[in-house]
Design a protein around this nucleic acid. Structure first.
Lengths: 142, 142
DNA sequence: GTGCTTGCAAATCGTTTGCAATAGC
DNA sequence: GCTATTGCAAACGATTTGCAAGCAC
């Protein structure tokens, strides 16, 4: 995680801070688990009992629009979120549902910019799906 | 599109043919528009008025399970489908919502297999998002 | 006090499920 | 006749919308 505080991080991305926005952004920065909106909601309810799920959705949309967070569509069932860090690929275990990071230097990550056909890409995602190391281990025992 | 008939294509993938399955698979093979389940349903209703949306969903799941079709999660709003052809990347225009193919030889496509971290990938998707050539053109006129 | 933010309740919409009717061998 | 497939209606669940109350400058 960056040295910069989450408060300053929001300011840097032109997001006006609030208790709720700080909590959501902080959660994303501290947990690399690629949580869904509901995951975040459930966890933050402990510290902000009045929190509404609508606010979590609103905040996540705002963060993505301002480039402070990233939305992942790797899981067909629901989107999940990631703090905006260096580009990296993602791996979804179709057995346990966990999403893992694959560091940049270990996989080739595609660049954005002008594409053949005249399209202009602003975002690229590299998704892998399969069975993760834990579930592979569990298979062997059966 | 392959020379092989859709009937034989289904047999090749161990999918027992039926009127509905042939129609769905045929639609996917003839239309490279990356349709959603609903797109397919609406179009096929003209030729099969008794078709049910449940059958379209069942059939698409079956086709994906048998490796005859591919499910794309590039659009956060709904999954869409592609006939199974050579690996290629996809581009989503966030303005008009269209999904384009990017041929293999024009983008780097990631290989499946063992990944760093001990995960085993069976599928890889490379997704780009941005503004397509048509919407870029329209922007200029405004 | 004005404008943005929050949060409740209801609506929406893609997808799945339960189950009875039907078709194919 | 038995088994797999189809299709209707209802359920489900994630996300969005409408709107009133609350907060901040």
């Amino acid at each position: 995680m960056d040295k910069i505080s989450t408060y300053d991080y929001l300011l840097q991305h032109q997001v006006k801070p609030s208790v709720q926005r700080l909590a959501v952004m902080d959660y994303l920065r501290k947990h690399k688990t690629h949580p869904t909106a509901d995951d975040i909601y459930v966890h933050l309810l402990k510290e902000i009992p009045t929190l509404s799920k609508t606010t979590v959705y609103n905040t996540l949309r705002l963060l993505v629009e301002h480039g402070a967070a990233r939305m992942l569509t790797i899981d067909e069932r629901n989107v999940c979120f990631d703090a905006m860090v260096e580009p990296h690929a993602h791996f979804l275990c179709t057995t346990c549902g966990r999403v893992y990071d694959l560091p940049t230097d270990e996989v080739s990550v595609a660049p954005v910019g002008d594409l053949p056909g005249g399209h202009k890409a602003v975002e690229a995602d590299l998704y892998y799906r399969g069975t993760c190391c834990h579930c592979l281990g569990a298979e062997l025992k059966n």
